[in-house]
Simulated scan of single mutants.
Amino acid sequence: MSKTAPRVAPLQPPYPPALQDAFNRIMQGKPPLVLFRTIATSERAWTKFSAAGLLDRGPLSLRQREIIIDRVCARGACEYEWGVHVTIFAEAAQLTSAQVRATVLEGADAACWDESEKALIAAVDALHERATLSDSEFAALRLHYDEKQTLEILMLCGFYRTVTYLANGLKLPLEDDAARFPSM
């Protein structure tokens, strides 16, 4: 991790049994992320945060979900969460190195995306910039995604905007093994 100290000290092991069980479920035997250990300093915050997770099998594919999350984090300058997601999910989501790079450095019209993915990225960008979608942006999204998928897209954008606020606002140190933003 980087040498920057977070603004709220994360919990250190040993963790209370119920929290250790939750960490084990989420992390599948790996040490819990600094983000999780920091949020868990408040039982209420941890309960609310962990109940709002959208990493289960929802109406979007893993690839679609990760494109959204990576773009939200990139637009919010959240290298912490972007790096965690790229490291854990990019390969399984079949994101190429050019696509991973594009989530940070290119527009929604980048040649590496198909039309449905361009619509996702354009929606993320619009929500980031204006907290809404124009009628034409919404229609472009609906050309490729049904109502349930569209709601999931909006919820993912909002949830990961919150994660971005948490990671950036708390100045969480980057995880040692997580990817870093590409440079120009």
Rank of each mutant, 00 (worst) to 15 (best):
R7L: 14
S183D: 13
V8P: 12
E81P: 12
S134T: 15
C78F: 06
D135G: 08
P173I: 02
F159K: 09
D146R: 13
S42D: 11
K148R: 15
L60R: 11
I67W: 01
V124F: 00
V124N: 00
L133K: 14
D176H: 03
D146K: 09
F138I: 13
F138S: 14
I153F: 01
R75D: 10
F181D: 14
P59A: 11
A119V: 06
A52N: 07
L156V: 13
D176M: 01
A90H: 08
T150N: 08
R75S: 04
A131L: 13
K30Q: 07
R180V: 03
R180E: 04
K171I: 05
T47M: 05
L105V: 11
E115L: 06
L133M: 10
E129G: 07
S61H: 03
E91T: 06
Q64Y: 00
Q149P: 09
E137Y: 07
R101H: 12
Y165C: 11
A74I: 10
F49Q: 14
Q20A: 11
Y15C: 07
A126P: 11
S61I: 00
S97L: 12
A178F: 01
P182I: 04
L156R: 08
L127S: 04
M155K: 15
L35A: 05
F181R: 15
T38A: 14
A119W: 02
Y145P: 09
A22F: 01
D21G: 13
S61C: 03
A111W: 10
N24E: 14
T41A: 05
I67Q: 03
A5W: 00
Y145I: 05
F138Q: 15
Q149V: 07
S42W: 02
R101Y: 07
A51T: 11
A111G: 14
T164W: 03
L120Y: 01
R25E: 08
K3L: 08
V86S: 13
T150F: 00
Q28H: 08
S42A: 05
E43M: 04
L172R: 05
A93T: 02
I39H: 06
T38Q: 10
R71C: 08
E117S: 04
R65D: 05
F159W: 00
C73K: 07
E147P: 13
R75M: 11
T96R: 12
P17F: 02
V72A: 07
A77R: 12
T96S: 12
R75T: 04
A123G: 07
H128I: 01
A122H: 03
F49M: 13
D146E: 12
S50V: 05
D176V: 05
A131E: 10
D56N: 10
P173D: 02
P31F: 01
R130H: 07
A123N: 05
R57S: 10
A45N: 10
E129M: 05
S42Y: 02
E152L: 09
S134D: 10
P182H: 03
L170K: 12
A167Q: 03
